[in-house]
């Protein structure tokens, strides 16, 4: 890299990481301030561990993200297999368009649209509130599905289709050929889709905000409620822990596989 290019990338990284660095530093602040550092302490980490409401929301978030990722990966992989086999141009285009909708629509519209339907159906059944864990799960599966499909579909298209046929010539049932030949071939796409679905669900605030019931609070919603009042470094302690978990996950997935082209992943 030329010196000018180096300086430019350094400035970009500074812009991206300065707020995160500040957040990491102030999570160790002794005092309550988020802008004046008075001394090093683990006080806010201890506070965080005593905050049962936040810990409960972490548990809720993980439960929701794991369920949403599992359901959307299974349904999305099946959908990709079906979509790849579609011969009708019209049906293909229709499925592609529908799949693109949740990705292109602003989150606020996806959230509002699902909320309106849940509320309407809830009223039909005379329920006071229809929003719950289940409505959130439906919403999360809905916005995760396209990402899984778009990870699996290219792998299916690249795959050599004579392989499952060879397996069937050698006596495999169609289901057997699918499980023993096709699935291992498209596994990298399935795994990437699963990870994307999981992280998208973990991080989602807007859609959750509109589809969440009263009793079920996820971590982003908990954070939103925390930032409505005066925020203490406790929230930064939480952010710091999240940061290192994400850092570890990204380093493992991005830097470990040396063969994969990173340009394919972004």
């Amino acid at each position: 890299m030329k010196p000018a290019a180096k300086i430019y990338t350094a400035l970009i990284l500074l812009f991206l990481f300065a707020p995160i660095a500040i957040l990491l530093v102030f999570s160790f602040n002794e005092a309550k301030s988020l802008s004046v550092f008075s001394g090093f302490s683990f006080y806010w980490y201890e506070e965080l561990l005593r905050d049962s409401e936040t810990l409960k929301s972490v548990k809720n978030t993980l439960l929701l993200a794991l369920s949403a990722a599992a359901i959307s990966t299974v349904m999305g992989t099946a959908a990709a297999v079906g979509m790849e086999k579609l011969r009708s141009k019209f049906l293909r285009a229709a499925m592609d368009t529908v799949t693109n909708i949740p990705m292109i629509n602003p989150d606020i519209i996806t959230g509002i649209s699902l909320m309106l339907m849940f509320v309407f159906v809830g009223r039909l059944f005379g329920l006071a509130t229809s929003l719950s864990f289940w409505t959130m799960l439906i919403a999360h599966v809905t916005f995760c599905l396209p990402y899984v499909i778009l990870q699996v579909l290219p792998k299916l298209r690249q795959m050599d289709h004579s392989l499952p046929e060879a397996a069937m010539d050698l006596g495999c049932t169609p289901m057997g050929a699918f499980l023993k030949v096709t699935i291992p071939e498209i596994m990298p796409g399935i795994v990437t889709g699963l990870i994307m679905a999981f992280t998208l669900s973990l991080d989602d605030f807007v859609i959750s905000y509109f589809t969440a019931g009263n009793g079920f609070q996820t971590l982003p919603i908990r954070i939103y409620n925390m930032t409505k009042k005066t925020v203490t470094p406790k929230m930064y302690a939480l952010a710091t822990i999240i940061f290192f978990v994400i850092l570890a996950l990204l380093l493992i997935t991005n830097l470990s596989d040396k063969d994969g082209d990173i340009a394919d992943k972004v």
Binding site: L16, I20, T227, M235, A239, I242, F243, L247, L250
Partner: peptide, 18 residues
């Protein structure tokens, strides 16, 4: 690219608050 992706996965409410 890994470095650029890291802030994306940081909760956006916290980033904005920072």
């Amino acid at each position: 690219i890994t470095l650029i992706m890291i802030p994306m996965w940081m909760n956006f409410l916290i980033r904005t608050y920072a």
